[in-house]
Design a protein around this nucleic acid. Sequence first.
DNA 1: CTATCTGCAAAGGTTTTGCAATGAC
DNA 2: GTCATTGCAAAACCTTTGCAGATAG
Lengths: 172, 172
Amino acid sequence: MSLAESISQLRIGSGPEQEIARQQFAQFIQKKGLKQTQQRALVLEVFLGISGHLTVQELAEQMKTHEPNIGLTTVYRTLRLLVESGVAEERHFTDGQARFEVAKLGTHHDHLICTVCGNIFEFEDDEIEARQNKIATDRGMTIRRHRHEIYAECDSPNNCPNNSSTQTSSSS
Amino acid sequence: MSLAESISQLRIGSGPEQEIARQQFAQFIQKKGLKQTQQRALVLEVFLGISGHLTVQELAEQMKTHEPNIGLTTVYRTLRLLVESGVAEERHFTDGQARFEVAKLGTHHDHLICTVCGNIFEFEDDEIEARQNKIATDRGMTIRRHRHEIYAECDSPNNCPNNSSTQTSSSS
DNA sequence: CTATCTGCAAAGGTTTTGCAATGAC
DNA sequence: GTCATTGCAAAACCTTTGCAGATAG
C-alpha cells in the first residue's frame, strides 16, 4: 500500500523524541479502546516531521502529498486525539485559526512572533519564569500554565526566511 | 435624537482615561480622512464603559439596548478601527472568538487568571519587560506589543472576590 | 462479526464583503 | 454634492456533525 510506504518513509530520519511521541499516542489509543489506522499514523508522522506551528490547513496540504484521499475531517479529529494524548498542543494567536505544535514535555517555550513576515520563533527565559512564579505565589496562587507571546518587527528582513511569501496584508 | 442622547448619557461618569481614548480615536479618524458618526461614537462609548474582555456579540448586545438598529457589521468594523487606532486590543483565548479590551496606554498590564474562579488579575513586572526587550533585540527585532497570561490556582479561595459566582467584573 | 473509523456533504458559528440607501463633511 | 458609512443579506471562513460505507480488532 502506498499509504503504508509513505508512513515508513516519513519515519526515516526521526529522532528519539518522535519515538516517544509515537509510543505515547499508541498507548493512548489502546487505553481508550480506539483503533490504530493508517490515516492516524500518517497524520502523526507528518505532524512529527514538521517542526513549527501549523494550521490544520497547512497540515492537511502536507498530508495530501502523501495520500490525496485523506479528508480534512480526519485531520481535525486526529489532531484532537493528539492534543488529548498530550502529543500535540493547540494554540491561538491573533488570527482566528488554531495552530498545533509538538508538545515538548517539560520545556516551556514561549513565542516571539514577527508582525512583518508572520514568522514564529521560540524563546525561553529562566528569569521570566522565576518572576512569574513570584507574581503568582505573592498572591497565594499556584501556576498551572502560562502563555507569553511577543509581537515584534524584524529590523532586517533577512532574519525571516519567508518574508517574501505568505504576506498578511498589513500596512501601518 | 435618541442615539445622541444615549451617547451623552454614557459619557457621564467617565474618567480621564476615557477622555484620552476619545481624543485618540478622534485624531485617528481625522488623520485617516474618515468620518465621525454616531454609530462609531456609540460603539466607542459602550466599549469604554465596560471594563472587561468582551466578545463582539456581547458588545453588540449592549449596543442594541441603546440603539436597536445598529448592525453587527458596524460593530465589527468600528472595533477594527479601534484596534487600529490603539484604543482597543484584540485577544484570542482558547475558544475561537475574538475578545476586545480597552488598551491602557503606556501601562502594560498582563494577566493572571485564576483557573478555579475565573478571576482575572492584572500584573506588571519591569524585570520581565526588560528581559522581553533583550530577547527581541538580540534577534534584531523591535517589540510592538506582547501578551502574557499566567493561569494559576488560588490556594485560599478567600483571595477571589467572586469565587462563588460567575462574575467577570473587576473591583479596581 | 462488531464497533470504530473514514470521507463526503451539510450544518454550525464567527467574521467579512457587496451593494443600495443614508449620512457626514 | 461628494464620498465615506451604514445595515442588510449573502458569502467566506474555520470547525463540527450526520451518515453510509469501509476497516481494524
